[in-house]
Design a protein around this nucleic acid. Sequence first.
DNA 1: TTGTAAGCGTTATCAT
DNA 2: ATGATAACGCTTACAA
Lengths: 354, 354
Amino acid sequence: MTPRPARRAPTVDPTAPAIAQPGARVTVRDVARAAGVSQPTASLVLGNHPTARVAPATRARVLAVAHELGYRPNVLARGLARGRSFALGVIVPDLGNPFFADVVSGAERVAGSAGYALLLCGAAERSAGEHLATLVSRQIDGVIIDAVNAAALDEAALAGVNVVLVDETSDRWPGVASDALDAGRQAASHLLALGHTRVAFVGPAADVHTFRMRERGFVQRLRESGLSLPSAMLRRAPATVRGGDEAMRALLAERPRPTAVFCANDLVAIGALKRCAAAGVRVPAELSLVGCDDIEMARLVTPELTTVAVPARELGARAARLLVRQLAGEAPRARAALLPVRLVARGTTGPAAA
Amino acid sequence: MTPRPARRAPTVDPTAPAIAQPGARVTVRDVARAAGVSQPTASLVLGNHPTARVAPATRARVLAVAHELGYRPNVLARGLARGRSFALGVIVPDLGNPFFADVVSGAERVAGSAGYALLLCGAAERSAGEHLATLVSRQIDGVIIDAVNAAALDEAALAGVNVVLVDETSDRWPGVASDALDAGRQAASHLLALGHTRVAFVGPAADVHTFRMRERGFVQRLRESGLSLPSAMLRRAPATVRGGDEAMRALLAERPRPTAVFCANDLVAIGALKRCAAAGVRVPAELSLVGCDDIEMARLVTPELTTVAVPARELGARAARLLVRQLAGEAPRARAALLPVRLVARGTTGPAAA
DNA sequence: TTGTAAGCGTTATCAT
DNA sequence: ATGATAACGCTTACAA
């Protein structure tokens, strides 16, 4: 066989000083050539493989040359050869919600330190299904899906993808979640302890598991104390500031008014709080308010928001870790426990008015 | 030459019904085989190339088969062959800051609809330089760098990378930025119009261009009205809620106190506002406060924050668009104009106390 | 218009 | 321990 034909653009001139040429990619082949070994041998060394049975001297030489030349592996090529991309995807409903920003941030930290890149997908513009499709065509190694109804996803698109759900449940994919039922229960307990009996709930109708569970826990705990939630006290609203604002307007028009309201998340609670301020309703004197998530904003409104703290960054971090471990070949461990949540009593809750 | 040897794992059995096999990747070769054309011909059709000189009949057949088989191109392989990854990176200091979350969100939208994936990099854990290196080894097509001092970046790492700076300037890379100087000027004008003469500034010492310009514009406008900023009225603090809180504590201890403070961003202003509330200083009666950015939070604190609105999402979107255009081969247009900013007078500013 | 062949940079499987 | 050789899935000359 004839020697390999000259490459179109030789990346490094062997006669040139061994300095990383700006703009020119240094490949394993260049390193091999310069180190006087075959290309696969260099690859064996550079791929820091566990099974790297290479003579110490050879290895050292290759490493030295690689360093000198400023060799950087081409992750795309590696991915193509290994059938993996060393990248994780994360799909969140909306990065504008600080809670999701935290989840993503936690995932990014873990993914990054495990050598994975994180591809960000906001489900606001494109649907989760579309995102999934493009991720798959990028040979994505795993996908974190947060607060997107997994059942609504296209079966075909999901075939053969490593998925971890955040704050959703499914018997098909593993997931990490906070103890949303307990969040609702703690909110109820707190209000009950303060003597509230006319309480309300504001949350989205959307079929997102966490919200459903928060609501369920709240109602459940109320029932245990002999209280019920009449339908007028159950307001459906999008999980946004605006949603909270509008729901609270409706709630304030009710007679009798509730003396306490649990909101599905902090954004809703803050919207509700804002409406109370606008309507001249004193919080917590006339009305108590409990949120959920404990985003940074919760401590910045006045009065500070009583809320149930949910470890958002930790959720993202765990989801990423789960994927990373799974990809490293570790057996998927038993169903992960729910992350505990904790009510933080601050300024928006007080004793029920007499 | 002998026919190509059998592949290790044939992805599709040609005799099987043409249904996307779950888990099995359908390749161009599979499509070509099924359509009875050569692999490159199929590639030509499927690569929706402008120069696709293929017989209409053939093209239709290939497309039909591809659809039937559920063909999805392997972006990694395509990238390797074309020397591009069809991915953009974005490096932000901290996703926890809603401003950056918005920038990223805007970039994601544009990148996504142009067929680019967005790799997220938070500069909190790893340095921007490290991120850049990993992005380069992923053959990244372009990188958006927000609020990271570009001069501090490793020259070598940046060689041959398409970079767009957000809210930074450099004569080396193109960038998009808001009119930070004008932001400072508008803040000053607003306070001057309200009769304030003892004003202060709180901002980070970090060498981030935008913050420097906001400060400069503020001081400049003050000077034009014959006012100066004594050093006691210039507090250095990290651009966070906490930083604002602590800086304001110091400011409140000064005698005489300032009657108005301009903060480098909303987070700082909100921290300052919080400190005022804690210290019993009435805002705006005793002290006026102006922030910068107009993040969602600004309207949620009490009183609502007067601030200079900066189009964060638009910045991210434009940065991404700049890269996408550049990658599409369009000539980089002349230096983009600064995005205008606009002061939004809300509740934290009022006339100077008599 | 289409097929053949080479190549992208890496990993994996064998002989040697 | 090392080196040929094939393969990953795609693009792109170039030849037919």
